[in-house]
Amino acid sequence: MSSTILCTRSLACRTSRSLQQPFPDFLALATISRHSRLQSTTSQPPHTPSPPPNAPKPIQPTSHKLSQDALSQTTKPIRPLTPDQRAFLSSALRVNQTGELAAILIYAAQNPVIVRSHPHLRPLMKHMYDQEAGHYKFFNEIISKHRIRPTAMTPIWTAAASLLGWSTAVLGREAAMACTEAVETEIGTHYNEQVRVLLDWSRKCEERGESLGPELDGLVGELRRIRDEELEHLDHAVENDAKMARPYELLTEVIRGGCRGAIWVSERV
C-alpha cells in the first residue's frame, strides 16, 4: 500500500519537476521538428544552375493555361513524375485526407464532453476543429482533383476516431489533451516526411535545371502551413496539461501506435 502511494507521489514529483524545467523533455519532439522545419525552409538554393547540355530532354508543358502559368513563374521545363513518385504522392495524400477526417471526428467527439465540464476550453476546441475542417476540405479537393483513390477503410477509421475522441474525453481533460498530443505528434512527423521528400525532389530537379511544376511547388507550401498548424495544436495540448494525464505513457504510446498502424494501412489500402 505504502509503496504504491510512494510510487504515485514520486511520479507526481517528477511530473511537476519536469513542468518547472525551462525545456522539459516532452517538448523535445516539437523542438526537433521545429529545427528541421527551419532547415527545410531554408534549403532552397538562391540561384538556379544552367541545365547541362546533354541532359535528357523533359516533356514541355502542353496545356495552354497551365503552361502560361508555369512560364510566367519560371521558364524551366517541368519534369514528369516517375511511377514511384506518383505512387508516393498517392499514398501520402490518401493518408493526409484520412488523417484529417480522423482529426475532425476526434475533435467533434471530444467537444461536447470537454466543453460541458471545462467551458473555458470552448474557443480552443472550436479553433482547432475549424483548422482541421479547413485541412480536410483542402485534401478532399486535392485527392478528387488528382484522381487519387480514397482509402477503403473510411468506415472503420470513422468509427475508431469517434470512439477514441469520445473515450479520451470521458477520461477527462488531461486524457483528451494527451490524445491530441499523441495524434498531432504522429501526423506532424508524417507531414514533415512529405515536405522533406518533396523538397528533395525539387532540389534534384533544380540541379538538372528543371522544375517540379507549379502544382507540386504549391503543394509543398500548403503542406508546410498545415504541418505548422498541426504542431500548434500539439503545443496547445501540452499547455493544457496533456502531461498530467494519469497513465500518460500508456495512453500516448497506445494512441501513437494506433496512428502509425492506421497510416501504414491507409498507405496501402
Binding site: I59, S63, R86, L216
Partner: peptide, 15 residues
C-alpha cells in the same frame, strides 16, 4: 494495376 489511380498531374500531359 500499378498505374491505376495514381497521382494525376495537370502540369504535363501523360505519356
Amino acid at each position: 494495376w500499378r498505374q491505376k489511380c495514381l497521382y494525376h498531374s495537370y502540369d504535363y500531359t501523360e505519356s
